[in-house]
Design a protein around this nucleic acid. Structure first.
Lengths: 125, 125
DNA sequence: CACTTTCGTTTACACGTGTAATCTTCTAAT
DNA sequence: ATTAGAAGATTACACGTGTAAACGAAAGTG
């Protein structure tokens, strides 16, 4: 549940929790690595905001907190992507694919994957 | 061109300009209708921000300005959607479709459209 | 010409976000 | 017990965004 949505930076933290949980702020920071370029303090801020938004839960473990996701990854994916489809493509998915195709953004692999997918759907999923 | 990206509200103004251009602030406001619930002043603010971002151009027509898009709709669509794909689905499109399928978000029409599309691609477009 | 209407320009202001630093409070070690 | 180090909590702060209102200039009206 939890209706409020999550910012870009917050979602990077969630990604780590979805990969592995529960985790401490420290370990999330490490998992993000220097690629993110964040201080631990930043990760903590984000975690607190996620707490307020009800997207994660924290359990005290000694002196530390262990965080785990409440918001489900699948739900988030769906929210984000159907939001985009609604805003840009009239809520439908085919126009998106068509757009990519028209702009040569579909690789051979994409096409292959899509074909297989449709086949599976046809076969009753 | 113009790298800076456009906010949600700004994009609604752009949508109108992409539909019809050039247009005055006033006519954009009317076209948006009460659905948007914006004052004309708000539309003007957004237009000015779009100007600063280089997404639109304005030509004086008597006492008014006529605005027209510089940023192309196709480019914007591509930016937005490949951004999302990158952030959520490893940059590939098939996983997005798969996700929708798994969550029963593909209508019969979607499936039909996708199949036709793939057929067209196969036939060398 | 003075006044009103109409545009555009400038200024406003709260809220979310990115990105921490600092303060506070425990716990652990000497 | 005192003190240092670690973890969380509080505070900060600039920038973008949504959403205008206020101000100023120009043009039309009487």
């Amino acid at each position: 549940m939890s209706g409020a949505d999550i910012s870009e930076a917050e979602s990077l933290v969630m990604q780590q929790l979805w990969k592995r949980s529960p985790q401490t702020a420290e370990s999330i920071h490490d998992a993000l690595g220097p690629d993110a370029g964040w201080q631990v303090a930043t990760v903590k801020t984000l975690l607190n905001r996620l707490l307020r938004k009800g997207a994660v839960r924290a359990n005290k473990d000694g002196r530390r907190f262990l965080y785990e996701p409440l918001l489900e990854r699948d739900q988030w994916l769906l929210q984000e992507s159907s939001g985009l489809l609604r805003r840009l493509f009239d809520g439908r998915i085919a126009p998106l694919v068509a757009h990519f195709s028209r702009h040569r953004r579909l690789s051979a692999r994409d096409v292959r994957d899509l074909k297989r997918l449709l086949q599976e759907i046809e076969d009753g999923r």
